[in-house]
Design a protein around this nucleic acid. Structure first.
Lengths: 165, 165
DNA sequence: GATGAAAGGACTAAACC
DNA sequence: GGTTTAGTCCTTTCATC
């Protein structure tokens, strides 16, 4: 593994990433058993993956509903002052994710709130900025898909006519 | 802590959740030191939080850019056959999150792709279903905000005139 | 919940391949 | 790069208060 922007990850690294994304609390010894490497070997590889910035941390995942957040939603925020949105997001603990994006909307926020009055209160903070559109999450069909290095072979280019010269 | 839909979490549980969301690889001994509980006490609380479904797992987080995904995006998918979308998502490893939502769009997908041709290939799978709108993530200003039990006191109801009877 | 003792396991470092 | 060994430390489990 080198330290270029996208380090070269071999099959061992890929298996390590898969295992740690599935269970971040594995001991290095158990991880070694699973990927068929000795414990010192996996420990060194994990440290290199951390140092290379591929692994950025280890987080417990929580069930927001069980925590007391009855509603999860996506808020799309139109063109607005960048710093102002950043400031508002920082003041909003209900905001789980906040992405500055291209397109008609400038921001896409993911929030978790207790109930409708709480949703109302959070929305009020953002809708004074600009136009917003809110969607309530009915079913998070997929969350936190474990990601492995992309395989070029996976990509099937769509068949499509192009303007020829 | 009881086992109703939203278990009663005291200050110790809240601190435990904060610590494990910040670093899921903490040992129970170290966690106990940080939250000022003995190691057996903290171990039992963590097990109860897991059993109650509040803690759903422990995951390593990865830097998608370093992994080789040069582009992250949000795809909004209009009204489409539910099962068909689920099937497409399952066949799409580039899809990190997939939410079925209310509103004009039926689905909001978060994807990671290598480059523009790869984006083209993934979009082609969904745009044949119905209308889609794609936004490229320029800056993930906030990701995976650690979430603690909501505090009613946090909620400031917006001042707003209502129709009186 | 805390404490203390015992057993098991995990991490580190070194030598070697 | 990897493995193996040896030593130390830590963690966990159990029993007791």
């Amino acid at each position: 593994m080198d330290f270029t922007l996208t380090p070269t990850l071999d099959a061992h690294d890929t298996r390590i990433l898969a295992e740690l994304q599935a269970d971040a609390r594995l001991s290095m010894a158990e991880l070694g058993r699973r990927v068929h490497l000795s414990q010192p070997a996996v420990t060194e590889r994990v440290k290199k993956l951390e140092a290379a910035g591929v692994i950025t941390g280890y987080r417990a995942t929580v069930n927001l509903t069980r925590l007391g957040y009855g509603i999860r939603g996506i808020i799309r925020v139109g063109r607005a002052d960048y710093d102002l949105v950043v400031k508002l997001v920082q003041e909003t603990p209900e905001c789980v994710n906040a992405y500055n994006v291209t397109g008609e909307d400038s921001w896409i926020l993911e929030i978790a709130v207790i109930d409708v009055p709480h949703l109302d209160a959070v929305l009020a903070k953002f809708c004074i900025l600009t136009e917003t559109a809110t969607s309530i999450i009915l079913n998070p069909a997929r969350e936190h898909q474990p990601m492995l290095p992309p395989q070029r072979a996976d990509v099937k280019p769509p068949v499509r006519k192009a303007l020829s010269a």
